[in-house]
Nucleic acid binder design. Structure first.
Lengths: 233, 233
DNA sequence: TGACAACAATGTTATAAAGCACAAATTTAA
DNA sequence: TTAAATTTGTGCTTTATAACATTGTTGTCA
């Protein structure tokens, strides 16, 4: 695990979205009790089976949460952007991690020791409620995803993944290119298909003028039809 | 929605597993502010799109939580037994329901108004934390289920469903029969397959002496091999 | 500069599982 | 108690998708 302290980064209080729910004492305490960790592209941040020791906040970069299934097939569960929390579900549920998390790009992660996190959850009702909200919303998304991945056909799954990426990461300055470049393999792992099928379906989308491709750069051209494909399955 | 008040039932305080986290005042308040509702077999308790008004506790019976996917194919998300809570995720996440819930057998449900539930969550830290734990654990299960349903083959999915049912509902007095009788269709909807395939695979399991069948009564005979099938996919 | 590795693209084949049609059995209702 | 409806069980056909194989592309580094 790469570990380096640096200075020129947004401090915790500007990254942590639940900061406003903290008391002055808690704030001061956290300022003195978080660590900064750097991860290289593709570096594993934690893996399935590990005992959780820290709750983590992505300060910069992009990160993927995934599970290894049957025959080491990979399923990407969700992808995070700066400001999002991770690695805390297992702490709360008193379990080992049941997912892997890896840096998608060079990423900076702030970590807070599990005991400290739990202690604040147990003493600050508003803070606890904020996490309850967050996790309730994640659970809804997870259930929806289960049905999408199991019932939709390959085109629907890919269309959905593209829309999801755009929603999560937004667009570049050109107002069209999705602000994340993933390999065909990652795209496949996100949409529950093989790499070949991701490639094939992607180029079908191009020839149908639904999207435009330039290497890993993807632009959504016909959003309406893409949404329709995603809905229809 | 069937609605009937009755007397001869375990009161809320014996059903509600988080009762111990409540203050005396809250207990008294809840005793005076819950309602009892009866649902017939197959009756819908709430459905996708509804605005949530109550958090619910299953007092007696069995209940299924499911989603309608593409082409009205049904996916059973989870099945509940007495004592379990439901219908509260959407309240917390401030969303409409994104699942349907229906009585599997004649069921009794206790309901607590959403505002009351939220108010206790926001004022009682221990109570809030208990729900945080519960939902964190559910989220882990949901993510695991996603991968199981998408990656395992038909035999693996069915084996898993059978083991899950046994774990959740236990066995009858004979020490073998799983204590829930579902139609082939429900079993299929639980395991993400068509009814025909559920029937076919079930009878394969019988001829391989993994299980025994008598109508809707199912007995697990060779648990070890069933677990192996479930793991292998 | 050329060789190698990683990635992307595409055609072919094999197979798991869905769809369909229909018969038999069981349950429900008139 | 008979009729209607639902559930269960099977065989056959079709389809979607994974697996495999091959080739093209790009980038990296000795």
């Amino acid at each position: 695990m790469a570990k380096k302290q640096v200075a020129d980064l947004k401090p915790l209080e500007e990254i942590l979205t639940v900061w406003d729910a903290l008391t002055p004492d808690e704030r001061q305490f956290l300022r003195n009790n978080y660590t900064v960790h750097y991860f290289k592209k593709n570096e594993l941040i934690h893996c399935e089976g590990d005992t959780p020791t820290h709750m983590m906040i992505l300060a910069a970069g992009k990160v993927k949460v995934f599970k290894e299934g049957v025959g080491s097939r990979t399923q990407i569960i969700r992808m995070l952007k700066p400001g999002e929390h991770f690695g805390y579900r297992a702490i709360i549920a008193n379990e080992s991690y049941n997912t892997n998390v890896a840096a998608f790009e060079p990423s900076t992660v702030y970590m807070i020791k599990a005991e400290i996190f739990i202690s604040i959850l147990k003493h600050n009702n508003a803070f606890c409620y904020r996490f309850l909200e967050e996790i309730a919303s994640d659970l809804g998304a997870s259930d929806a995803r289960t049905v999408n991945l199991t019932q939709k056909h390959i085109r629907g799954r890919l269309a959905e993944a593209l829309l999801l990426l755009r929603k999560n990461y937004g667009l570049e300055e050109d107002g069209a290119t999705i602000s994340i470049y993933l390999s065909r393999e990652d795209l496949a792992n996100l949409s529950n298909m093989t790499t070949s099928n991701a490639i094939r379906t992607l180029s079908n989308f191009v020839s149908e003028h639904l999207i435009a491709m330039d290497g890993r750069k993807l632009k959504i051209i016909d959003e309406e039809r893409l949404k329709k494909i995603s809905k229809m399955g």
